[in-house]
Amino acid sequence: MSPNRPAVDGARETARRAKTRERLMDAAYRQFCEHGINGTSIEAITDDAGFTRGAFYSNFSSKEELFFALTERENRVRLETLREHFARLIAPLGATGGKPDPHLIEGVIADVLSFQPDNRQWCLINSEFKLLALRDPEVAPRFLESSRRFLEELAAMIDVAVRSVGVRFVIDTVDLTRMLVDQFDSAMQEAILSGAEEADRAVRENVMRTLPLLVHSLTASAEG
């Protein structure tokens, strides 16, 4: 047997395992979105993904463990999507050479919102996860840590981007980012509860009523 064969077989097994995990997470995304975490059985997830319970437990110890993996994946996708486009999206803020006008901020926020995938579905799933964490003290610390990491990574990205165009925030960037995320989540929840046919459009209209002016009031020239 070739001495390289074990390494090749190991790489194939790793790739196969990664694909299995992805299919299970994709199935869980669909099932959790439609039925909620408590209303979704492991069998429903494995049936949707085309696997057995054994395949599930060889990758995840529980539904909660899968939920954490799914959350990490979705947060990573959203951060990577923004990171890819953020420098271009934020560039208009430097057009005035000082504190940006509200209409410029409005355009940037609109562009950022347009790059977020599956907003309605992810809001439903994230709300499920938050409720689970509120009810389960064993889940809560890990949920808080996951949320904190996401906010800090997003805040760091925003801070670097705005400083690159000569702008800074007058409050801590993590606090500002939390405010932005909370307002977006609240707007999406309101759109879902109201039965809006075009949830993303309703969210944008809601956010645009206050967010640009809020960001404008908390922004200053980096030289100021």
Rank of each mutant, 00 (worst) to 15 (best):
F115Q: 14
F115E: 13
D118A: 08
D118I: 01
N119H: 04
R120L: 09
R120S: 13
R120A: 15
R120F: 01
Q121F: 00
Q121Y: 02
Q121R: 15
W122Y: 11
W122K: 13
W122F: 11
C123P: 00
C123T: 15
C123V: 08
L124Y: 07
L124G: 02
I125P: 07
N126L: 08
S127M: 05
S127Q: 10
E128G: 15
E128Q: 14
F129N: 07
L131A: 14
L131M: 07
L134Y: 02
L134I: 01
L134M: 09
L134N: 07
D136M: 04
P137A: 06
P137G: 04
E138Q: 11
V139A: 04
V139T: 09
V139R: 03
A140C: 09
A140P: 00
P141F: 12
R142M: 02
R142W: 02
F143R: 02
F143L: 03
F143T: 00
F143I: 00
L144W: 02
L144M: 09
L144H: 06
E145Q: 12
E145V: 02
S146D: 04
S147A: 15
S147D: 13
S147W: 10
S147N: 12
S147Y: 13
R148G: 05
R149T: 11
F150W: 09
F150M: 02
L151F: 10
L151G: 05
E152Y: 04
E152S: 10
E153P: 00
E153K: 09
L154Q: 08
L154V: 02
L154I: 04
A155I: 02
A155P: 01
A155R: 01
A155E: 04
A155N: 03
A156Y: 01
I158K: 05
D159S: 12
D159F: 03
V160H: 10
A161N: 04
V162S: 04
R163I: 03
R163K: 14
V165A: 06
V165Y: 06
V167D: 03
V167M: 11
R168G: 08
V170S: 15
V170T: 15
V170K: 14
V170N: 13
I171G: 01
D172I: 00
T173I: 14
T173Q: 02
D175G: 02
L176V: 03
L176G: 02
T177A: 12
T177V: 08
V181I: 13
D182I: 11
D182G: 15
Q183G: 07
Q183D: 10
F184D: 09
F184T: 12
D185R: 14
D185G: 07
S186Q: 12
A187Y: 00
M188N: 13
M188A: 15
E190P: 00
